[in-house]
Amino acid sequence: MEPSSASDATGEGRSAGNRPGDRIVTIPNALSVLRLLLVPVFLYLLFTDAIGWAVAVLMFSGFSDWADGKIARLVADQSSRLGELLDPAVDRIYMLVTPVALAAAGVVPWWFVAVLIGRDLLLAATLPVLRSRGLTALPVTYLGKAATFALMSGLPFVLLGQFDALWGRVILAIGWAFLIWGMALYLWSAVLYLAQVGLVIKRLPRTAAGSRGTPGNG
């Protein structure tokens, strides 16, 4: 949920020719729906100790998240308004469900989950301010996507590292390297987001109705 530029934040950074269409059936949307359906599958596999399959689901979800964004940008008629809403919503679900589930399974500490959720709650608290200026949210940034990618890459490695073997300890260290780096980016993207909210408050007057801007995710 981070802005990409000050011009985007004020609704001026997107031309009419680049606006997404109203299509529903697109490849990116299908991938987002599939990722959403895999959430309960992941939970079932995790809590039935099918660790390998649970890791596979997380890795597929991370890859498909990257793939749907690429397809939406590079393939004609694959970008849609629904996709702009659905993709970040599914990201948020994974960023909530996965750490909580792994903490409940004893894979990651609860403080890690608290930092992630606290950051998202802080950004969510700015939404009424944005809406009072006629915005729904601020555009996504590559920094926010990179943070999400690092975190969603690290979590499968940390889960896979639970196996009691030398290779498991190596994988665990790699996973935590991703998580630490992702957490740093995640928090920094929140700082930038709040700075953009400050610009919105300064530059845009309050409005009674209407919506501008593009929802994003961090």
Rank of each mutant, 00 (worst) to 15 (best):
Ala137Val: 01
Leu74Gly: 05
Thr98Arg: 08
Leu130Ala: 05
Leu82Phe: 15
Leu43Ser: 11
Leu38Glu: 07
Ala56Trp: 06
Gly106Pro: 09
Leu138Asn: 02
Ser132Cys: 00
Arg73Ala: 09
Trp110Pro: 10
Phe47Trp: 02
Thr48His: 09
Leu130Glu: 00
Phe47Ser: 06
Val129Asp: 02
Ala125Ser: 15
Val97Lys: 05
Trp111Thr: 14
Val108Ser: 07
Trp53Tyr: 14
Asp65Glu: 01
Ser32Trp: 00
Ala101Glu: 13
Gly106Asp: 07
Leu34Phe: 11
Val115Asn: 03
Leu34Ser: 11
Ile71Val: 01
Ala89Gln: 03
Arg35Met: 07
Met95Pro: 03
Gly52Val: 07
Ala72His: 02
Val55Lys: 01
Phe60Lys: 05
Trp111Arg: 10
Val140Gln: 04
Thr126Cys: 13
Ser132Arg: 11
Val108Trp: 03
Val75Pro: 00
Trp110Thr: 15
Phe63Lys: 00
Ile93Arg: 01
Pro99Asn: 09
Gly52Gln: 06
Met59Thr: 12
Ala30Lys: 08
Tyr142Met: 13
Asp77Arg: 14
Leu135Gly: 09
Ile117Ala: 13
Ala50Cys: 04
Trp111Glu: 08
Ala103Thr: 06
Glu84Tyr: 02
Ala56Asn: 03
Gly83Asn: 01
Ala104His: 08
Trp53Asp: 15
Lys70Asn: 14
Met59Trp: 09
Val100Trp: 05
Val33Gln: 11
Leu116Gly: 06
Gly69Val: 00
Leu31Met: 06
Gly62Gln: 10
Lys70Tyr: 15
Val107Asn: 13
Ala54Phe: 04
Ala137Asp: 15
